[in-house]
Design a protein around this nucleic acid. Sequence first.
DNA 1: CATATATCCGACTTTAGAAGTAGGAATACT
DNA 2: AGTATTCCTACTTCTAAAGTCGGATATATG
Lengths: 150, 150
Amino acid sequence: MWITRKTDYATRAVLALAIHGRETPLSVQELADRIQVSGSYLEQIMAQLRGAGIVRSERGPKGGYRLNHAPEEITLERVVRIFQGPLAPIECATRSMPASCPMEVGCTLRTTWEEVRDATIAILERTDFGSLARRAGGRWVVDKPVSADS
Amino acid sequence: MWITRKTDYATRAVLALAIHGRETPLSVQELADRIQVSGSYLEQIMAQLRGAGIVRSERGPKGGYRLNHAPEEITLERVVRIFQGPLAPIECATRSMPASCPMEVGCTLRTTWEEVRDATIAILERTDFGSLARRAGGRWVVDKPVSADS
DNA sequence: CATATATCCGACTTTAGAAGTAGGAATACT
DNA sequence: AGTATTCCTACTTCTAAAGTCGGATATATG
């Protein structure tokens, strides 16, 4: 329960864009409707995604957002990091180890927290929005017809 | 960064008790000193651990807390669950699936969140306080002399 | 029995961050 | 010109975490 709604919305937005394809942009309102969230809130999120180079925007009528790179090149890890900060479950297990815990005995718990951290990162890193969109069966995949769900 | 300090303190307290051994109880103040936390706050935490059957207490002078079972039988998962609730990173990925996400396309992100959840649970389940204490080199292991750290 | 040492219990305070609103400026298509 | 869009920033609201505090209850020991 540590993924915030903001992160949730952001990942869903990126997925929606991946499914939609990069040919034409999608307006915030369109996106907001698809992922069921208020437009003005999503605006902020899209701005952050833009700042991080995940999406790019076009203004004026017919404007909107589209992915800045091929969906296969965008990992879930990258998007999640933008909104969540460190992925370690606990402070003492961040990769930039800040404060060591004050327990007398070397805190052997940390090892386990680090295992959790690494497992989490590994999963998020190997998950890209290309496969996610493909699995969703979105029509943006035209050249690679999916034979069957597996 | 989703493990709260309360959970952190609780796991450290249980580890401290595991290291101390089950022969004699340890007072809250003693425990609080070892894990560097205020006594009154730790009291609440110990009460919760007691309610969950992890520790038992004795009142009066020479009283305090001790583990209710052999440390090997207490997994980290069990203790963490008491204070953290569901271990899924996001609501739609809890084992008691509550609300499905409102995206039109079947939300393929959920699969990944579930992977994270399962990996996390697996790690916490296979970690017991017996091994944690042993790794810490606490002297509560008298019968099983540790040859070398590995 | 008196006393000191503990657990027990519940009500209260403070703070930070999540979650979302609102209003208007800038830009670009038709 | 007019309209549809992004852009930007300030503000509000709410919840949960984190911790404090005061006193009641139990029990070992001299």
